[in-house]
């Protein structure tokens, strides 16, 4: 176990989150059970007040969680200097068996909390507060996920072992390794690239068509395919190294922190697409602006990742 300042900071915030989220959780259960917008009882009145507290707490957690995610990657990068064999966050994250799950939960929670806030904003504009029960039911699920994430995070940092040699991105993200990643390396490059651009074309198509359900599905698929193509194909051009497939290393200084830009644009693009579609399916009067936001940020992401191979080709005249 380490006692670095970064980890202590993360611990403190985790504990604050946990305490506040537990408050919100208890109130949410009460609201889901007893909420009745037509009632004029004392209870309903106090529940309405408490709903605002829960919303505030969730906003607080979400707003901090966004930069905290980046900070987590930063920290993992820094610790990689201490753990033998780890060159970047990938080695640190994968030195623990559930490291990857921690990441999955972190991203999932970001999406859920973000969606919750979008739903909340919509709910507040509705004078009947018709989504209140729904949003607090969602929070009950989100709370469980948050607890799992925090539990994973604390046990992650406390089980890091300085003495253990870990395999880092070079071996983890390669065809030869036996890790769970190696399965995806069976996909040939041209297939993944074609799928990627095809999906993107569909995304553009649906965003002009303005149909919610296909747009939602295509955004989810686009998120997954983007990550896969980033690992399999585009990453190698960022590193200008055909064997390096790491999705973390380009978060480092050597690559001008381009990874943060990539992940943030991808997140905003797909998130606004997904949450916007769901909200619009719930209420038809939701503004259509999200199609534009989603399209702009997704296109930005595609433009950046596409630029790397093209620039490489122009410079060197060959493909990797």
């Amino acid at each position: 176990m380490f006692l670095t300042p970064e980890i202590i900071a993360i611990y403190i915030l985790d504990i604050i989150f946990l305490v506040f989220a537990s408050f919100a959780f208890i109130i949410s259960i009460m609201i889901v059970k007893k909420w009745d917008i037509n009632s004029t009882s004392e209870l309903q009145y106090s529940l309405e007040k408490r709903a605002i507290l829960v919303a505030t707490i969730i906003k607080y957690i979400f707003i901090l969680k966004l930069p905290l995610f980046i900070f987590f990657v930063f920290t993992a990068d820094k610790i990689s200097g201490v753990i033998t064999g780890a060159m970047c966050a990938a080695g640190v994250v994968n030195s623990i068996s559930f490291g990857l799950w921690l990441f999955v939960f972190k991203i999932l929670n970001l999406f859920i909390f973000g969606f919750w806030i979008a739903l909340h904003v919509k709910d507040m504009q509705d004078e009947k507060l018709s989504f209140t029960k729904l949003k607090f039911s969602i929070f009950i699920v989100a709370f469980v996920l948050l607890v799992v994430e925090i539990f994973y995070e604390i046990s992650f940092f406390s089980s890091l072992d300085v003495d253990k040699i870990v395999s880092c991105c070079g071996t983890l993200f390669s065809v030869a390794s036996s890790s769970s990643f190696s399965l995806i390396f069976n996909i040939p490059n041209n297939v993944i690239i074609t799928t990627f651009y095809l999906i993107f074309a569909l995304l553009v198509f649906f965003s002009f068509l303005k149909k919610e359900l296909p747009f939602l599905v295509i955004n989810v698929i686009f998120f997954i395919v983007s990550l896969l193509s980033l690992i399999l194909f585009f990453g190698t051009y960022i590193y200008e190294l055909p064997t390096h497939h790491c999705p973390y290393c380009f978060l480092q200084r050597e690559y001008y922190y381009v990874g943060y830009l990539l992940y943030i644009t991808l997140f905003i693009g797909t998130f606004s697409g997904i949450s916007g579609s769901i909200l619009r399916m719930l209420r038809a009067d939701y503004k259509k602006i999200f199609y534009k936001t989603s399209l702009i940020f997704n296109s930005l992401y595609v433009a950046i990742v596409t630029a790397y191979p093209i620039i490489f080709y122009i410079k060197n005249g060959v493909w990797l």
Binding site: L3, T84, V162, D163, K164, I165
Partner: peptide, 15 residues
């Protein structure tokens, strides 16, 4: 002073 749990100086060991 934070000494390593296992005092293996080179920290080379087979897993």
């Amino acid at each position: 002073y934070n000494f390593a749990k296992k005092n293996n100086p080179a920290r080379i060991q087979t897993p």
